[in-house]
Simulated assay, not measured.
Amino acid sequence: MSTGTRGKATSRDVAKLAGVAQSTVSYYMNGSRPVSNDARARIERAMATLDYHPNSSARTLRTQRTNLITLIERLDYSSDASDVAPYLTSIIEEAYRQGYDVILNTTKADPDSLRRMDGRNICDGFILMDIKQHDERIPVAAQIGLPTVVFGKTDDDHGLDVIYFDYESAGVVIADYLAGFGHGAVLFLDEEPSETSEYILFPSMYATLRERCAGHGMSFDVMAFDRDHVQSAMDAVCEHIPDRLAVITRQPRATKDCMDALARRNLKPGRDLTLISICPDSKIDSFDVHPSNLSQRPREISMQAVHMLIDRIEHPNRPQQVVAVRSDHVTTRDTTVDFRGANAPAV
């Protein structure tokens, strides 16, 4: 049997020889999920045949602590700093309160960077952010065996601890809120509106909003809202104004861009339409007109991620944890219109 690079067997080789999924091998090695006796026996035979030994540096780190956590977040020139800053700041501050310092890796957050950091024995665990539906870093992190928290939702967590904001639940809360104020149409303006997005959470939120809005008798649509689609998005807004319209945006930059585009059409949120921003409460004061918002609770979810990782460092054999953080309300501010009992607004 061919093995991994340089002739050294990997967990993938073990899985192939044992006839099990690679995630099952990961569960066996990190103890995060039960493995049947039959699968356990086949994995152990395969490991013996291949002379496979789990990464020794990870085992060393569990007994010789560095009190360093590596936070891995994909950032480049196009990234919205206002989006990620509340999470990064909260993780760094909470880790410090718990006696840990944080190494921030943003330059090349790929599987090879995980392997390099593991080989240098520089940290006690990873927090992986900016998680995609098929994230190639996750099986590598599981193979390495170092305590890891996946900060986002993926199609296969390989038995690692997971924490994420529940955007599906947020869709229910927003739809119910808008129905309660008598809206007839909902338009989600998003920079990445594809329902086949590489991020699993947003398409599921669109689907939930569409179903929930239909249940309330409201129309729902998603439109691209970036530099190339501002005019078409605003045309759609103007078309739906008579339908008691609510517009949803995600993150501060997109919300500000939407407000500016509406102003150029002489449309005012809170008068002509409702604007709901999915953004942290801490960003509201940066707007001249304060948007009604549903917060992703970045401070709370970031603190929980740190606690989850430290608990895994201290208790490496405990069961896997998967935590969904929810927001149960929209905060009404300057941009909500109460359409109850009103006729369609004049344009």
Rank of each mutant, 00 (worst) to 15 (best):
H240E: 10
I248Q: 07
G215L: 00
A261R: 09
D221C: 05
D235W: 06
S219W: 03
M234E: 10
A207V: 03
R264E: 15
S219V: 03
A236G: 03
R212T: 11
K256C: 07
E191W: 06
R271P: 00
A214V: 00
L262I: 08
A207I: 01
A236R: 15
R253H: 12
H229S: 15
E198D: 15
E198P: 14
P193C: 08
Q231N: 13
P242I: 05
G217H: 06
A261F: 09
S204T: 11
H240P: 00
E211K: 10
L209T: 02
H216T: 06
D235G: 05
L209P: 00
K256S: 13
I241V: 15
P193V: 05
P242N: 05
A261H: 10
S232K: 13
S194H: 09
H229E: 09
S232G: 03
L245C: 06
I200R: 15
E211W: 00
M259N: 11
R250N: 10
M259H: 11
A246M: 03
D235T: 12
E211F: 02
G215N: 01
D243K: 11
S232F: 08
E191P: 00
A254Y: 12
Y199L: 07
R271H: 13
S194F: 05
M205P: 00
R210Y: 04
D243I: 03
S204C: 09
G270S: 05
R212N: 05
R265D: 08
F225C: 08
C258D: 04
A214Q: 04
F225A: 06
L273T: 02
E192V: 12
G270Q: 04
A254D: 12
D221T: 12
S194Y: 08
A214M: 01
F202V: 12
M205W: 00
M223Y: 11
V247A: 00
R264M: 15
E191L: 11
A236M: 12
H240V: 01
D228R: 15
T196D: 15
I241M: 08
F225E: 07
H229R: 14
L267I: 13
P242G: 03
V222L: 02
D243P: 02
T249I: 05
M259E: 15
I241Q: 05
T274W: 01
A207N: 08
V230S: 07
H240R: 15
S204I: 10
D243S: 08
A224N: 10
R212A: 09
R253P: 00
S194L: 09
T196P: 04
Q231R: 13
T249H: 05
R227A: 14
M259V: 14
A214T: 03
I241Y: 04
Q231M: 10
E192M: 12
